[in-house]
Design a protein around this nucleic acid. Structure first.
Lengths: 217, 217
DNA sequence: ACCTGAACACCGTTCAAGT
DNA sequence: ACCTGAACACCGTTCAAGT
């Protein structure tokens, strides 16, 4: 009857210490990444922070401003990606892999950035790094742009598939049940149901695309 | 002061005529595709239908059931996709293009299906049709599964990129502004800012992937 | 069988009031 | 400078009541 403790995380222990905008975004980011966008209510956020709802409005603004702040943090993180490797092809592969890893770690935030039309800014650092590598093997202009986008497209969708597969796996690989039992190629059905294969799918596609780029310059 | 007419569509003209579950899903689908998922509130839906909110609960159930019904309709539509073309490679290309077109038309619904873990069922019909073509050129089992997934991944991400590009174009191609003005390859920056290029990106990637598949059997 | 309004818990947001 | 509770409009949902 006293504290209306929700199911949320244990409240931050503050002792007169004021909240900061940074702290608010930190806790908000945790909620979004752990429980999804819908779980981020202003009241739950304030509960987790150990302050009244209205304090958030003073520091960051309304819910929209909180989400904007979260997206900005994601964009900052994207700028830390650096190419590594001896050859341009290796360096491009490393950029694609790092991009993929970051997207996989922050799925909900990435979706949020996309919804809010921030995808271009989100991908910009990696695009620029890729452009440098493409230029170093003589690919520029629209030719470079095309290859750059194809690589980007490949990373993004592999992340999507990965996520879908992970969810499936968690509640027991429904795939096989969906196929008619008289479908001839049972081995294919079994292979499609294997969620671990998505790393391989990503690397296979990456290899094919980079080979195509390597051959085309 | 009488009818509290919202900004929604003009209410359906019913005259004692009862609503049906089909009609509810039809109107709900329009709202979602035209104004996004958040715009689908039970009260707006009932307003557009010209009935009281609570009627919806009688026919379809709660909001969750409405969304489920919308996803089911999308899955039905996916089953209408058929391969066309003379060669297996052409037929696979036609499947990829039809999948892409359908996904582009129903973006919000597709996102909804994905969120609700229905992606596997959504892609199943196309997967099966692709499997038939792959089998016809001697690719089966995990080899076929890998190529099938790479194609699927390519279609999905190209749709995402398309959407992001379309949004950008609508409020004035922000891309170039994001690049530093001293970035050497201005032609590449201009090419990346061209939203029309996404059809080309899709076809280029599709061609590369299908060539790889054709060469590998 | 089908529709309705009243009611409830929840949400985002504003504002006047505190220290 | 920072925090608070009260209040408002909105939302999903239930339910008793109508015809």
């Amino acid at each position: 009857m006293g504290a209306t403790s929700r199911i949320g995380a244990v409240p931050v222990d503050r002792d007169g210490r004021p909240v900061t905008a940074d702290e608010i975004l930190e806790v908000a980011g945790n909620i979004v990444e752990r429980h999804g966008l819908d779980a981020l209510t202003m009241r739950r956020l304030s509960d987790d922070l150990g302050v009244a709802v209205t304090s958030i409005y003073w520091h960051v603004g309304n819910r929209d401003a909180v989400l904007d702040g979260l997206v900005d943090r994601l964009l900052d993180r994207m700028e830390t990606i650096r190419a590594v490797g001896a050859t341009p092809i290796e360096r491009m592969a490393s950029l694609a892999r790092q991009l993929r890893a970051t997207l996989l770690e922050r799925q909900h935030l990435v979706g949020l950035a996309h919804e809010r039309d921030r995808s271009p800014a989100m991908f910009l650092p990696v695009q620029q790094a890729l452009a440098v590598e493409l230029e170093s093997i003589g690919l520029t202009g629209s030719e470079a742009a095309l290859r750059l986008r194809v690589l980007q497209v490949h990373v993004i969708s592999s992340v999507l598939m990965d996520r879908a597969a992970a969810r499936n796996a968690s509640h027991g690989t429904v795939d096989p049940d969906l196929w008619p039992t008289d479908f001839p190629d049972r081995e294919l059905v079994a292979a499609l149901a294997d969620p671990a294969a998505y790393d391989t799918v990503f690397e296979f596609g990456l290899h094919v695309l980079l080979s195509g780029i390597d051959a085309s310059h």
